[in-house]
């Protein structure tokens, strides 16, 4: 009906006739992203190294972690034993590499269980609100009210402490915290108008949760989960001190520190406890840095300058 112009006012003005368009600013989407930085890659590298060691510990040229070599007891670092040996002559590097399996399985496995259950429920509660939210939220408070360490100790003491059981118990214990984080993040998006728009278009609840909410919640969840892994690695250490981690002599970082700290070894050979503690410290730092940088990277800047 308008005689001169096309129906809709193009935002691209025809000053393009003169060789330039107002709409085509070279805003490369990559240019707006923050750089991850060297520290991030160093930290990611360390995590990858630990994971690699844990997976391929069997095929790496390492002595049996439980082999007691009485000709080299309490030896310092040497070419033969890169990190030295403990009071039973076991190779420390080998014990730490094999021990990382326990830390990683418990850490990542536990968080995976927590995310799968707590995350799903958190999304649902945050989006649905109302009675669903009230019930789930109340339940999470009840569970959080138990001191988690105490609850884990009780369960481990009565049920046993194989790696699988330990992972399952810690995973269940992490559900309420993950539920709460994801519920809160979901709630901050659930009332945004794009969710209302999706409902108005007839999208199902499943679709809204997966397509609209999950991508927005995921970065915060991922970052929190990595910190959660770090916390669980420390928790394993605490359990070992109470003799409630995996049964000795199976190495775990907690077990090695525990052994290194008993029998006055801390005075005579502090290196035994130092190495696993150092590994733990580096893994914790790396997980925190990676989680933090990833979150910052995926934080979408809403609105232009």
């Amino acid at each position: 009906m308008p005689e001169i112009a096309p129906a809709a006012t193009p935002e691209r003005p025809s000053a393009a006739v003169l060789g330039r368009r107002a709409d085509d600013q070279p805003e490369s989407p990559n240019g707006t992203r923050r750089k991850l930085g060297l520290l991030f890659w160093l930290c990611l590298g360390f995590i990858a190294l630990v994971v690699f060691g844990a997976i391929f510990a069997n095929v790496l040229p390492l002595p049996n972690p439980n082999l007691q070599n009485y000709s080299a007891v309490d030896a310092g670092p040497s070419l033969h034993h890169l990190l030295g040996t403990d009071d039973l002559g076991r190779d420390l590097l080998s014990r730490i590499v094999f021990g990382s399996r326990v830390s990683l399985v418990v850490g990542f496995g536990g968080i995976a269980i927590g995310l799968a259950i707590g995350g799903t429920l958190g999304l649902l509660a945050g989006y649905k609100g109302g009675a669903v939210d009230t019930v789930l939220n109340g339940a999470s408070f009840v569970i959080l009210a138990f001191p988690p360490l105490l609850a884990i100790i009780v369960v481990v003491a009565f049920w046993g402490r194989s790696l699988g059981k330990l992972t399952l118990i810690i995973g269940i214990a992490s559900i309420p915290s993950l539920f709460r984080v994801i519920r809160a993040t979901t709630m901050s998006y659930a009332n945004r108008e794009f969710v209302v728009a999706a409902r108005a278009m007839g999208a199902s609840t499943r679709r809204i949760l997966l397509r609209e909410l999950l991508p927005n919640v995921a970065p915060a969840a991922l970052s929190f989960a990595l910190i959660g892994v770090a916390l669980i690695v420390v928790l394993e250490g605490s359990l070992a001190f109470l003799g409630l981690s995996v049964a000795l002599p199976t190495p775990s970082w907690g077990n090695i520190i525990y052994e290194g700290a008993s029998n006055n070894l801390l005075q005579t050979d502090p290196l035994i406890a130092l190495w696993p503690a150092l590994a733990m410290f580096l893994l914790l730092t790396s997980l925190n840095v990676v989680g933090d940088r990833l979150r910052a990277r995926f934080d979408v800047r809403e609105g232009a300058l």
Binding site: R12, A15, R21, A22, Q25, E27, L305
Partner: peptide, 26 residues
Amino acid sequence: AAIPGRPPDLTTVPTGCAFAPRCAYV
């Protein structure tokens, strides 16, 4: 009478008059 287009990105202000791409008198 809307002004077509939008203001330039201030990181890359074009040479010449910045309003030229949207101007009726360009």
